[in-house]
């Protein structure tokens, strides 16, 4: 009980050695409503302390450089009284849970994101000029995520929507297995821009357990890659409107030609039932 218990001592990898904000001021350079933060050598909590502190000072645009794996960027910015949502530019590689529980801010990453980007995100925008790891947009409830390249396993798992709040995830590359698993709402667009001609998407068990929302998939996918709760449909005019809108937004972020992307064949993946497991019980 005295910090000397070496064998069983508890090391807190998040909080041990965290310095108070007052010692970290040299990492921040504020200029009116803009700020620059050098994240080199900052712990997860230290960086987020600085971001919150800077936001509370009325800064609305922050550039964070030298980010090497710091987690939860954007998570501590639940500030309902903030007049204007923030824009945070991040380079090169933020850590896990980027924008988890994000409350309406805009995060732009010039590099790759790791696991859990947009985890249970509530609102806002995440734009990633690179790839992202596993469980992107898990349980995302609102806002938009644009990712230029590939994503890892279980992207869009359990995304959900309610009334006007419809989250959107647009992925330029391809995804890994269990893509859209348990999806309960929202719109996911998988473009496969980095696949060669006739190369099929990588994922298996796409949309397994899906019971809401929609996946628009560009490029080839075989039926055996889909979960059994998913049906394939052709896009109608309303779908094209949605896809067109998100593709042009995606293109404007990353400098693609939307017309070229839209030329290719798209398929719509829908759940066959909103109650996939309604009939497995004896009452």
């Amino acid at each position: 009980m005295n910090n000397l218990n070496v064998k069983f001592g508890l090391r807190n990898m998040f909080l041990d050695g965290v310095r108070p904000v007052s010692e970290l001021v040299q990492h921040v350079n504020t200029n009116g409503s803009n700020a620059y933060i050098d994240a080199l050598g900052l712990k997860h909590k230290e960086l987020n302390d600085l971001l919150r502190e800077t936001a509370l000072k009325g800064v609305t645009s922050i550039t964070v450089q030298n980010v090497f794996g710091q987690r939860y960027i954007g998570t501590r910015l639940y500030l309902p009284n903030l007049a204007k949502k923030m824009e945070i530019k991040i380079a090169p590689n933020p850590g896990n849970d980027l924008g988890a529980f994000l409350n309406g801010h805009r995060l732009i990453v010039y590099g790759n994101a790791q696991d859990g980007a947009g985890n249970t995100m509530d609102d806002g925008e995440i734009i990633i000029h690179g790839r992202a790891g596993d469980i992107v947009a898990m349980s995302m409830r609102g806002g938009k995520i644009f990712i230029r390249d590939n994503v890892g396993y279980r992207a869009a798992i359990h995304m959900k929507e309610y009334t006007g709040k419809v989250p959107a995830l647009v992925i330029g590359g391809t995804a890994q297995d269990f893509f859209g698993e348990y999806m309960a709402g929202g719109r996911v667009i998988l473009l496969g821009l980095n696949l060669s001609k006739n190369e099929r998407h990588k994922a298996h068990y796409i949309g397994t357990g899906m019971h809401g929302g929609v996946i628009y998939l560009r490029g080839r996918v075989e039926e055996y890659q889909l979960g059994k709760e998913v049906g394939i449909r052709a896009l109608d005019s309303h779908d094209w409107e949605i896809v067109g809108q998100y593709v042009s937004e995606f293109s404007s972020h990353f400098g693609f030609d939307p017309a070229e992307i839209l030329q290719e064949k798209f398929q719509k993946l829908l759940p066959v039932s909103t109650r996939p497991y309604g009939k497995i019980y004896a009452y």
Binding site: N119, M138, H158, G185, G212, T274, R275, P276
Partner: peptide, 19 residues
Amino acid sequence: VTRMIPQGTDALSPAPQHD
């Protein structure tokens, strides 16, 4: 409204937390 899901759809809680 409280669960923030559409009316009438199953509310499925997966066995593990996938993160």
